[in-house]
Amino acid sequence: MPIQVLLVEDSPGDVRLMREAFQDANASIRLHVATDGIEAMAFLRHEGAHDHAPRPDLILMDLNLPKMDGREVLAQIKEDDLLKTIPTVILTTSDAEVDIVKSYQFHANCYLTKPVQLDMFEALVKSINDFWLTKAKLPQQG
């Protein structure tokens, strides 16, 4: 069974980089993309065009998103009994203390900043794969 990852990211450049990096790190990953917060929630709740969307094993999400921003999406996921067991990793450019604190207060499972250098970015995606999708034991379909 392929590993399902939902990437919530509005920048096409970052989406493509993530695809490239995941391709190198673990070819069996299926990367789904939501480009704003509303679409992310629709995907997770199988609404509209997403009625056959799989339940992701991991959510990777930027904080600054159009329509509904990442903080709000995070809060909704963690208030939802069906969704809150999905590890949700914040991946953003912000290293502001207020964003870090707020994310953990909303029960983000991990907070990461996007490295500036390509090889560092690739290394980070590799370590996300190694830890969250390989070493960590995750709950089965809840």
């Binding site: 450049g13 970052d14 980089l17 500036v116 250098q117 390509l118």
Partner: peptide
């Protein structure tokens, strides 16, 4: 940094 990260990443990817 943000747009620059894009330029840097893709020129590096191109070079590689």
């Amino acid at each position: 940094q943000e747009p620059l990260r894009m330029v840097a990443s893709y020129t590096q990817l191109l070079a590689r």
